Structures are given as C-alpha cells and as structure tokens.
Computed example of a mutant assay.
Amino acid sequence: MYFPVLTGSFEMAPMTDGPERDIDDPASGEEITEAEIVERIFEAVMERRLAAGTKLSESELCKAFGVGRMRIRRALLLLAAREVVELRSNRGAYVACPSPAQARDVIEARAALEPAVARLVAERAAPETLAALAAVLEEEAAAHARGSRHEAIRLSGQFHLRLAEASGNATLVRILKDLVTRSSLIVAIYGAAGLETCRDHDHATLLAALHARDGAEAERVMAAHLADIFATLDLSGRMPAGLDLAQLLARP
C-alpha cells in the first residue's frame, strides 16, 4: 500500500528545507503543544484546506505555530503514524496522497469486511455496547448540525471502529483501524466538497438493525452504506496544490 512507513533513521536526518539554528523551541509565554499542532494540520487536511501532496515545510510550520523545529518534527512523526503525512527521505514531509488505484484497494477491502462485521455485531453485541454506539451517533449528528466537517469525519470513523470492536474479533479490529484511517483521508482528497465519510442517518438505520438483532439486515445496510459513500468519490485525478501554510495554520 502507498501510505507512509516510518524508518528509524528519520529523526537523525535533517529534512533539508531550511537552516538548523532554530532546532530548539523558542521561549514563549503561550506555547502550542504537539497535540494541538497535529490536530490543526489534521483538521486542515480533512477540511481540504491542505491538499494531498502539499509539502509541509518545516520552516513555514515553525513560523505558523511559533515553535522550533524539534516540536514540528515530533508533530510530523505523529501525523505520519496516523498516515496523514508521508515522510520522504531527504525531501521532507508531505500530505499523504494515495493514488486512485490505492484508494480503490481500501474501498474494496472495507466493502469485503464491514458487512460481515455488522452481521457479527447484530448477533453478539451486548446492550451496553449498542448504547455506546448510540452515544457516538448522537455526537456525530451534533457535529453535522454544527457544520463541523473535521469532527463529523472523526466521529464517523469512531463509529465504524466501535462497531468493529463490538464484533469481538480482534483481528478485524486491527485491520479496520488501518482501513478507516485511510478512508478518512481518501474522502477528504477525492470526495465532493462538503462530503462527510458517512451520513449519520445511515448509521441510525444500521443501529436499528443491530437493536433488532437482524444480522442479514445489518449486513445489507452496511453494504449499501459503503457503496453510497464510495460512489461519490471522484478518482479521476488529484486535488490542486494547497495554499500558504502560514496563512492556513497560524494562530487565530
């Protein structure tokens, strides 16, 4: 698959897009944390303000966030672990950009696995597990109502991961964690403007089938749900280049 693989040598090799003199974080009365940097970049990617393939220049990120290179590098490593960023040897960091063929691989894998997961959950899930799924669904609906695309994408992925966990199959959970993360990025890159990874009413229909313990219906709803989402993707090309990083990511 396309998505980045971290190597042990990354932290030792400079990313070669600027001088090293500011390697330590500057003193600041209001320092932004690595987690905040990660979430702001992730949100910009999910909202399509940072396009696939955009170079994440260390020097520009330092300027945008008011921190030194070590903090930026640690944040980029965290983003690479989430497969949102690709680290290229001696070239730096880029927003990950799966090809259309690689995107189809992810789509086909989810379509093959998740309907079967839905059937297992209908057969196995305890009432408290279904209640937890309902709570995620309520949060997702609230995010849609607020127009928070980043939060809706995150909660949509969380719903699917919680569903996998409810199956009781650890192997499926491990595989789907990888696939759901990749799918979120694929939808952000190839989806129509304003498209979420999932529509919350589809999740509600699925949850109703789970409560009814109807495995066949749960399997059917999940298959149709995934088909509807993936049918909206435009896999004919790539997104255009992103805008200025400092403008996109600077503190408000």
Rank of each mutant, 00 (worst) to 15 (best):
F3H: 12
A227K: 14
V84L: 11
L163K: 08
V121R: 07
E47Y: 02
P4Y: 05
H150L: 05
A51Q: 10
T197W: 02
A231I: 01
Q158S: 06
A208F: 13
A134N: 11
H203Y: 02
A118P: 07
S148C: 11
A64P: 03
V45L: 08
A109N: 14
A96H: 04
V95A: 13
P100N: 06
I37H: 08
A75K: 08
P14V: 12
D105C: 10
L133N: 05
A212L: 08
A52I: 04
P14Y: 00
A116H: 10
E60Q: 06
G191C: 04
E20A: 09
R74N: 15
A166N: 05
R199W: 10
E140V: 00
G215F: 14
P240R: 14
F230N: 01
E11I: 14
G8R: 15
E83I: 10
P14G: 11
S28E: 13
V95D: 12
Y94M: 11
F159I: 02
L235Y: 00
A131R: 00
P100W: 08
T205Q: 15
M1K: 11
L243V: 15
A193I: 08
R40V: 05
I186S: 01
H150V: 00
V85G: 10
M222W: 07
A112K: 13
V121K: 06
R146K: 12
V85L: 13
A145E: 04
R154D: 13
L226K: 01
S9Q: 12
M1F: 14
F230D: 00
R124S: 09
P98V: 04
R110H: 10
A13M: 08
V136G: 13
V106P: 00
G18S: 13
A209P: 07
P100I: 04
K63L: 12
D234M: 04
I37V: 11
A51V: 12
A170Q: 13
E34F: 03
A64S: 07
R220A: 01
T181C: 00
S236R: 06
A152T: 01
A192D: 06
H150I: 00
E140W: 13
E86D: 15
L163N: 11
A111V: 04
V5S: 06
E123W: 01
A118E: 03
Q102M: 04
A112H: 13
M46D: 12
A44G: 09
E139I: 03
A126P: 00
A44E: 01
R104Q: 08
K55M: 07
E139N: 14
C97T: 14
H225Y: 09
C198K: 04
S9Y: 13
G237Y: 00
E43Q: 13
I23N: 05
H201G: 01
T7P: 02
